[in-house]
Amino acid sequence: MTITLIFLAIIMATVIFWLLKQTFNVEPWVSDEVADEVSGASLDLKPQAIALTTFMAVATSLFALFASAYSLRMEMPDWRPLNEPFILWMNSAFLVLASIGYQWSRNNVAKTDIGSKKVLNGLIVAGTFSILFLIGQLLAWKDLSDQGMFASTNPAVAFFYVFTAMHGLHLLGGLYVWARSVMKIQKNQDIRVVRTSVELCTIYWHFMLLVWMLLFGLMIAT
């Protein structure tokens, strides 16, 4: 559980420290004209950005718990390390390219003087490589099952299937938002309608890449 505890300790410490900072040296029972003028928003962020950050904290907790379960289960005598299929390296490269595609799109979406073409190109790169990543993951599954490595064979194999499935599902959720952005651009030809979506999806794609690298790293190292 150490991994989870470290992750959660960081998240909780950040949240609690930030909240405490709002409460120090405040005497709420005294009239305060400065406070009267305070806007009702605590952070200079769009609500969607806060919702995404919160969701990523939830996902972090989920994957950290899976990683903790992995490390605890490893201690049992039936654990046999998994020879990860080589295709995972190629898949990882696809995910990096998808992330770069989104970043490219994001860099362009902020510039209102350019057309939607560059943004759309970036999105298509991101989406194509994400889909290739998912197909690659399925091929890795096929590779393992062809070798007779099923989830019931060994806990390391079972964790591989679970990790990749959970990560893939999260990426599919992202692809749903991606598809909506692409359709909106094609319909409107106005990139402003997708600006928030592209900005937030870029963060999410980087997050998914980070999660994958950590999970993949954990599996390779053990």
Binding site: D36, A41, L43, P47
Partner: peptide, 24 residues
Amino acid sequence: ATMGGLNYVTTVLQYRCKGMTLMR
């Protein structure tokens, strides 16, 4: 619960009216 939770957190943080500091 997660769908609801995202709403509650974001609303408390960003949708308070003018003058409603966290400590009020």
